[in-house]
């Protein structure tokens, strides 16, 4: 272990909060919102790999791989949805798709 686990967790938490800020701030562009989700998933992967290195068990690397496969499936579906919505409304603003919330 080259650095203490606490430093890895601090880095992961900083990256996670940056991704959270990106999701909360960029409501005017749904692609930037998806990028925020990517950043948060990367922070989760960093925690898994850091734990794997800390306790010397490769299970964390396996789950990092699972997160990667899950992310690629999620991104392909979400970007297909973005293309579909853009074809209907000619915009990527999230606030333009609020019929589900407004009565």
């Amino acid at each position: 272990m080259i650095v203490p686990l606490a430093h890895i967790l601090i880095l992961a938490a900083v990256i996670f909060s940056l991704g959270l800020v990106c999701v909360l701030v960029w409501r005017s562009n749904v692609i930037m919102l998806l990028i925020g989700i990517e950043i948060m998933l990367n922070a989760a992967m960093l925690v898994f790999v850091g734990g794997s290195a800390r306790w010397g068990a490769p299970d964390g690397q396996v789950f990092a791989l699972m997160i990667m496969a899950m992310t690629s499936a999620e991104v392909s579906l979400a970007l297909a949805l973005v293309v579909y919505l853009h074809r209907r409304r000619r915009t990527v603003d999230v606030d333009a798709f609020r019929e589900l919330r407004d009565p």
Partner: peptide
Amino acid sequence: IFFLLLAPLVAMFEVIIYAGAVMVLFMFVI
């Protein structure tokens, strides 16, 4: 960082899948 944490396979997949495939998919949609 993954390579430093003794996970070379995850580091390679990070470059191939994330920096390669997923980001190029985003760029393609943009």
